[in-house]
């Protein structure tokens, strides 16, 4: 599915035709293939139940894929799991922490679990970076939800992973914390960590990702550079309702790419929000110059759902 314009380097994570089906016949992943490049931030966009968490679980060793292979840094996650897993840090979606443990202790445990010798200086750096240093001796249950998420990140970073999986890091998180999270991700990228995050917020992918993958019903529908995808996602529609229906578009308006809909009652103009000049002001002027009377105006943004619908119908059309 994912076609690269030339393999500049060995991919950090290589997912080949991974399937996961459960005993009840449900297929959570239907042959997913994906390459994740060293040092990039890849956002996996998809609605709930799309298979995002299952895919991450299959890479991290939490679930066994039914078929297909995954390698991390060239190590197969099943046959060479030690090599693969020691490169990977995982921040789960749920806040899974021992409530009675203290922050420093639980982070130290994570490092040890990955076979790394004690290094409290490093852990101090990580905790400071995540604004957790003051809370190092607090019990987990005394922390706010946002702080707990930071602890999960600290635990995942404690063994210095080269690849970090963030499973919906900002689901149910307030705006301020979301910004903080994005800053943390940007900093990690600077440090050379490859980051894969799942989300269902387009803005999040837009804010931090280099590439965006769209997953739905266990299938990767596309993987694209963010800039390319955002152009498609950034399309907006202006609907101009007219007082009186017209049968033909005035030539000046037809030249601007307007369409006539709803038996001549509505003019539809598609434009790109990312452009400096959207051309709306001129358009409105031209509409009234053409002698048309406006009754109402509406704008509509292309949503992720539109993209899904588009992609799925494209897929069906191709099949």
């Amino acid at each position: 599915m994912c076609t690269e314009e030339g393999n500049r380097m060995q991919p950090m994570v290589q997912i080949s035709n991974v399937r996961k089906s459960y005993a009840d016949g449900f297929e959570a992943l239907k042959g997913v293939s994906l390459e994740i490049r060293d040092g990039e931030i890849l956002a996996l966009l998809g609605p709930n139940g799309a298979g995002k968490t299952t895919l991450i679980s299959a890479i991290c060793g939490i679930t066994q894929p039914t078929s297909g292979t995954v390698t991390v840094g060239g190590h197969d996650v099943v046959t060479a799991y030690r090599g693969a897993r020691s490169l990977v840090g995982l921040v789960p979606q749920e806040i899974n922490l021992e409530p009675f443990e203290r922050v420093m202790n639980t982070v130290r445990f994570s490092r040890g679990l990955f076979g790394k010798p004690k290094d409290d200086a490093l852990l101090e750096r990580i905790l400071r970076q995540l604004s957790l240093w003051d809370k190092r001796d607090s019990r987990i249950m005394e922390l706010s939800g946002g702080m707990k998420r930071r602890v999960l990140i600290a635990k995942a970073l404690a063994h210095e992973p080269r690849v970090l999986f963030l499973d919906e890091p900002t689901a149910g998180v307030d705006v301020e914390l979301r910004r903080d999270m994005w800053d943390i991700v940007a900093q990690l990228k600077k440090d050379g960590v490859t980051i894969i995050l799942t989300t269902h917020y387009i803005e999040e992918a837009e804010a931090i990702a280099d590439r965006i993958g769209v997953i739905n019903k266990g299938e990767i529908l596309l993987v694209e550079e963010k800039t390319a995808l955002m152009t498609r996602l950034g399309q907006k529609e202006l609907r101009i309702e007219l007082q009186d229906a017209i049968t033909d578009l005035p030539a000046s308006l037809a030249a601007r790419g307007l369409r006539l809909e709803e038996s001549g009652h509505v003019l539809v103009y598609t434009y790109d929000t990312a452009q400096d000049r959207t051309g709306i002001a001129t358009l409105i002027r031209e509409v009234s110059d053409a002698g048309l009377v406006l009754r109402d105006l509406q704008t509509r943004q292309n949503s992720l759902e539109d993209i899904f619908v588009g992609l799925v119908s494209e897929q069906e059309g191709a099949a």
């Binding site: 991290c60 060793g61 939490i62 799991y81 030690r82 090599g83 693969a84 897993r85 020691s86 990977v88 995982l90 789960p92 749920e94 899974n96 922490l97 021992e98 409530p99 994570s110 679990l113 990955f114 076979g115 635990k155």
Partner: peptide, 13 residues
């Protein structure tokens, strides 16, 4: 029970 098992399963052990 509390879900921290994910860490054991994803560790190189």
């Amino acid at each position: 029970f509390i879900g921290t098992i994910y860490e054991l399963l994803s560790a190189p052990i």
